[in-house]
């Protein structure tokens, strides 16, 4: 196996040191959310970016993980931390069932089905009050006052998820996933059960997304159906994270996560209170414009088109050189 490159080690070292240097709870909070989104974005990317099965419903797995942790507290009286253990497997099971239903069909059925199933999960969580307490949500008592334990847990999850994707890509599964993305007919004729391997990809993806959901329950200590089963704040956000960073690249979603969480925060706070409050309402619009920009100019995302970004910059410099020479 190839050794892990030094930029990776540097980035991880910086992330380990970050909360020790930066004492502000606010910045630690933003980083914790970013790391959580690294997990979700990478998980989404494995399924959509590498296997070609676009999901508009990753909130299904996020919410399932979160509610597994939350219901453990309210219904079973166990610690929400059990969710970290159970949230992944329960979400994986949901993924398995969805795949079993949708992956026999070709084309956009999977994408459409994920939207529909996502809404069903949200509505069930709202209306099944005896189970979920509906829109009252689930409130638990946070285990730690300090952000540090959460930070390092989120960091460990993010590293585990990116590393898992890395390992998968260097294995038979990874080759099979990409072959299916490129051409399902070819995949079948070279001995790949597209149904089986699409399901496997979805299971890995839903597992990590469920873990992220369980983490969210523990960290935020409050969830309700609109938050964790949200179409645009979770499902669409997962897509944006991957698109901005680079679909089908290992590091794209990690980069995209930090950018998107910061952008969201900048808008939520209306540029840290510098602009009038209505600006915070505009974030959906700005995200939309951002996606259009990225798709138009950086179709492979910031990571996928990095050479283009730096190359263009370099070329412009050379041009200005030559024009000044004339």
């Amino acid at each position: 196996m190839k050794r892990i490159s030094w930029p990776t080690i540097v980035v991880i070292a910086l992330l380990v040191l970050f909360p020790l240097v930066v004492q502000s709870d606010y910045y630690r909070h933003i980083f914790i959310l970013s790391l959580m989104w690294v997990v979700i974005g990478s998980a989404w990317n494995l399924l959509a970016g590498y296997t070609g099965q676009v999901s508009f419903g990753h909130a299904i797995f996020f919410g399932t993980g979160a509610y597994t942790a939350g219901l453990g507290v309210t219904k079973l009286g166990i610690s929400a931390w059990w969710g970290m253990l159970l949230g992944g497997p329960v979400a994986l099971l949901v993924g398995l069932i969805i795949g079993w239903i949708c992956f026999r069909l070709r084309g956009p059925y999977f994408a459409l089905a994920t939207i529909a199933i996502g809404e069903i999960f949200r509505l069930v969580a709202i209306d099944w009050r005896s189970m979920t307490d509906g829109m009252d949500g689930i409130l638990i008592i946070q285990s730690f006052r300090s952000k540090l334990p959460y930070y390092y847990l989120a960091l460990a999850l993010a590293i585990a998820c990116v590393f898992a994707v890395y390992l998968v890509l260097r294995s038979k599964w990874g080759y099979y996933f990409v072959a299916i993305r490129e051409d399902q007919d070819v995949a079948e004729t070279i001995g790949i059960s597209s149904f089986r391997y699409k399901s496997l990809s979805l299971m890995i993806s839903s597992y990590f997304t469920g873990m992220a959901g369980a983490f969210y329950m523990n960290y935020m200590a409050f969830i309700d159906p609109h938050v964790v089963f949200s179409l645009h704040d979770i499902s669409i956000m997962a897509i944006l994270v991957a698109i901005i960073g680079g679909v089908g690249t290992l590091w794209g979603p990690a980069v995209g996560a930090f950018i998107m969480v910061w952008l969201q925060e900048i808008f939520r706070s209306a540029f840290f209170g510098l602009l009038p409050q209505w600006v915070s309402e505009a974030h959906v619009l700005v995200f939309g414009l951002l996606v259009i920009f990225v798709i138009r100019y950086l179709a492979n995302g910031i990571v996928g088109d990095w050479s283009k970004i730096t190359g263009d910059w370099f070329k412009k410099k050379q041009l200005s050189y030559s024009s000044s020479g004339n």
Partner: peptide, 9 residues
């Protein structure tokens, strides 16, 4: 990589 994918058969 095209050929590796089929060599996993």
């Amino acid at each position: 990589d095209n050929v590796i994918a089929s060599a996993f058969n």
